Simulated scan of single mutants.
Amino acid sequence: MLKNVKTAIFDLDGTLVDSMWMWKTIDIEFLGRYGISLPDDLQKEIEGMGFSETAVYFKDRFGLKESLDEIKHEWNRMAFDKYQNHVPMKKGAVHFLQQLKDNGISLGIATSNSRELAETVAKVHGLDRMFDTIITACDVRAGKPAPDIYLKAAGDLGAHPDHCLVFEDVPMGILAGKNARMRVCTIYDEFSADQEEEKRSLADYYIKDYEDIKFGTYEVLKND
């Protein structure tokens, strides 16, 4: 998997940290204030959208009177304590990141989350000392599945797409990596368990957790 890899770029939520569980709760509480029930299609509709894109979507779909900045500020407020105190790293992630650093592989984060929350959880787990760049979808023109965020991360790290390996947990993120002409390893996450077949059809590699890489038990889904 790591052959010819000079740069590894990671999605954050559901990929590096186990955080997807909390967003449904936040969406239910947030929309409940307006007397709106959580639509069944919401998560699929917003998958891959950046923080600002999602705010636009919520404002338009649900007719919210608040400004985009007010909506984003409230989401950050609602999620801050969870990211600071209740969001763990994925199993084996810290060891794997250190292995990459020890082997001279540059590291980037490419997340659809807000910079405030990304930097909070990165600091909590010491990722700010390991990663060379953190890019959010708000830093580029279009969120996932557009390739912009991965190309921006690679550009910041001086890396060619051919030498980049992306780690993602949902189909829109996998497509963003593939659209950037990079190889993609997808990781199991309970939140996207119902998308396993689609994830496997799109990605180059599959892991249950990062210990699969440590022990060589990862799955090769496409020939290099």
Rank of each mutant, 00 (worst) to 15 (best):
M1F: 06
K3N: 14
V5N: 04
K6T: 11
T7D: 08
L12G: 00
M20L: 15
K24E: 14
T25L: 14
T25Y: 11
D27G: 02
I28G: 03
L31G: 03
G32D: 07
D41G: 05
D41L: 09
E45S: 13
I46Y: 04
G48T: 02
G48H: 02
M49K: 15
E53F: 10
E53L: 12
E53K: 09
T54W: 11
V56M: 10
Y57M: 10
Y57A: 04
D60S: 09
F62C: 07
E66P: 04
S67N: 05
L68K: 08
H73K: 15
E74S: 04
Q84M: 07
H86K: 11
V87D: 01
P88F: 05
P88Y: 08
K90E: 03
K91W: 03
G92C: 08
G92S: 05
H95K: 15
F96Q: 07
Q99S: 09
D102H: 13
N103L: 11
S106W: 00
L107A: 09
T111D: 02
N113R: 08
R115I: 11
E116G: 02
E119K: 14
A122L: 14
A122M: 15
V124W: 11
G126R: 09
D128W: 11
D128L: 13
R129T: 15
T136G: 00
V140A: 08
V140G: 06
A142M: 14
K144L: 09
K144A: 05
Y150T: 01
K152G: 05
A154S: 12
D156I: 03
D156E: 13
A159D: 12
C164K: 01
C164A: 14
M172S: 15
G173T: 04
I174T: 00
G177D: 12
G177K: 02
G177T: 05
K178Y: 03
K178D: 05
V184S: 06
V184Q: 03
T186N: 08
I187N: 00
Y188V: 02
F191L: 06
A193Y: 11
D194R: 11
Q195H: 12
Q195Y: 12
E198M: 13
K199S: 12
D204Y: 02
D204E: 05
K208H: 14
D209T: 02
Y210M: 06
D212N: 15
D212A: 10
F215D: 06
G216D: 08
G216C: 12
G216L: 15
V220A: 12
L221P: 02
L221S: 12
K222H: 08
N223C: 06
D224R: 12
